[in-house]
Design a binder for these strands. Structure first.
Length: 408
DNA sequence: TCTGGGGTCCTAGGACCC
DNA sequence: TCTGGGGTCCTAGGACCC
């Protein structure tokens, strides 16, 4: 059966939200940056993009490109709040909503087409509601599957609406560069180019055997990608697999060397991880310590615990044991603590339909929050203890207000 | 005062067991 | 006077995404 999948991608989301909440920023080159000292460009407005400012750039680089760039520190509470309002709008058009990130979602509208007349009508309604209620634009892609819907939403930005019909897929893909496909990154592109594959058309016709030899399991998927085939369903938060790892890491304001400094940060990271694990109702048996040195060399070491743990002190001590087994020679720039091998230790089964719906919403918002690291760490500078000069990591940031949003 | 943070999935190699 | 082979688990790292 032919499906109708919609991918909705908010345009320059963080920057657009900032411009919306502060009119002085409208029409100007704006970049949203992390709250930490050592940060990068998280998102930039279209005005800033015109100067070449891009996600991932250092502040220095961005300022070189655009000296009058307005830098705004990320206001995660605001973005999550706006995001949740957008996700609620989607629910009015289909229950099959997959929240894939804070500013993106897939909708399977196959079953609701007849209520609204056409898929274009649904797209129009969604776009105009987001625009009038929140003042934001989005790009909508419509196609028979997620892969193509995602591709479609990328074709026209900002404020785009792109429909890909099954019949036009071969023509569209024939000359499309492979790197346009979600899932084919720089390394894979490079390897494929080396094999003489540059377009999706070429990829779709390439020898499966050769691709499997070079890429393993991915090889088969690559062929399908080249042909625009993707049977994966739109997964609601209910259907989605349980979280598999919970971790926090942070680039420190200054590089550190002393064990007591390292230990202090580890205890804070362990607390953040533990708190989140307990909130999820899970404990984990594997603890991983990640270290990045000032030369950017990065490595991780893990240890299996005798039994699953979720208490912060236990996670902390596990991380410390790993640390004490290492020979450190360089200053440390980043520390990370991760809990995996997770087991559920309690189950809640909401019974009432209302409760159930609320649970579902909470779960998707949790994902919105949890998937984005920049939402979880507050600036150490804001919380540092006066006089002591210590860097203090905040508790995992959580939008308290979110749970109070009416579900109507 | 150059380079974030949250994840998922896959793989290669080694340990270990039968 | 020789050196199997399958399976599973674990570890560390890499590719990729937002």
């Amino acid at each position: 059966m032919t499906r109708t999948i919609m991918h909705i991608d908010m345009n320059a989301f963080f920057a657009a939200v900032e411009q919306q909440s502060n009119p002085a920023l409208r029409g100007r080159p704006v970049a949203v940056v992390g709250a930490q000292q050592r940060t990068i460009i998280l998102t930039s407005s279209y005005e800033a993009r015109a100067y070449g400012v891009k996600t991932g750039m250092t502040l220095y680089e961005a300022r070189q490109k655009c000296p009058q760039l307005q830098l705004v520190k990320a206001n995660n509470r605001l973005y999550t709040h706006v995001s949740s309002q957008i996700m609620l709008i989607f629910q009015d058009y289909t229950p099959l909503v997959e929240v894939s990130s804070v500013d993106e979602a897939f909708l399977d509208v196959s079953g609701s087409l007849h209520y609204f007349g056409s898929v274009e009508r649904i797209a129009y309604l969604i776009k105009s509601r987001i625009k009038s209620r929140l003042g934001l634009t989005c790009s909508v892609g419509i196609a028979p599957n997620k892969l193509l819907a995602k591709l479609a939403s990328d074709l026209h930005k900002p404020d785009g609406l792109t429909l890909i019909q099954s019949a036009e897929v071969p023509d569209l893909l024939e000359d499309l560069p492979i790197e346009e496909i979600c899932g084919i990154g720089p390394k894979t592109t490079q390897k494929l180019n080396h094999l003489g594959v540059f377009s999706c058309g070429q990829l779709g016709r390439f020898s499966v055997t050769k691709l499997k030899k070079q890429f393993g399991v991915i090889g088969e998927r690559l062929i399908l990608m080249g042909r625009g085939i993707d049977p994966s369903p739109v997964m609601t938060s209910e259907q989605e697999a349980a979280v598999k790892t919970i971790g926090h890491s942070m680039t420190l304001r200054k590089d550190i060397c002393l064990r007591e400094d390292i230990a202090r940060f580890l205890s804070q990271l362990a607390e953040m991880v533990g708190r989140r694990a307990r909130r999820h109702g899970v404990s984990g048996q594997t603890v991983t310590l990640t270290i990045r040195h000032n030369d950017f060399s990065t490595y991780s070491r893990q240890q299996i615990q005798a039994a699953p743990i979720s208490r912060s002190e236990e996670i902390y001590h596990a991380a410390l044991r790993i640390l004490d087994g290492l020979l450190l020679t360089l200053p440390i720039r980043l520390l990370g603590v991760r809990l995996s091998n997770l087991h559920h230790f309690c189950q809640q089964i909401p019974l009432l339909p209302e409760e159930r719906r609320r649970e579902q919403l909470t779960a998707s918002l949790d994902r919105v929050n949890d998937r984005h690291g920049e939402f979880t760490v507050m600036p150490g500078s804001l919380l540092s203890v006066k006089g002591k000069g210590s860097h203090v990591i905040s508790p995992a940031w959580r939008p308290e207000g979110i749970r109070n949003i009416g579900v109507q």
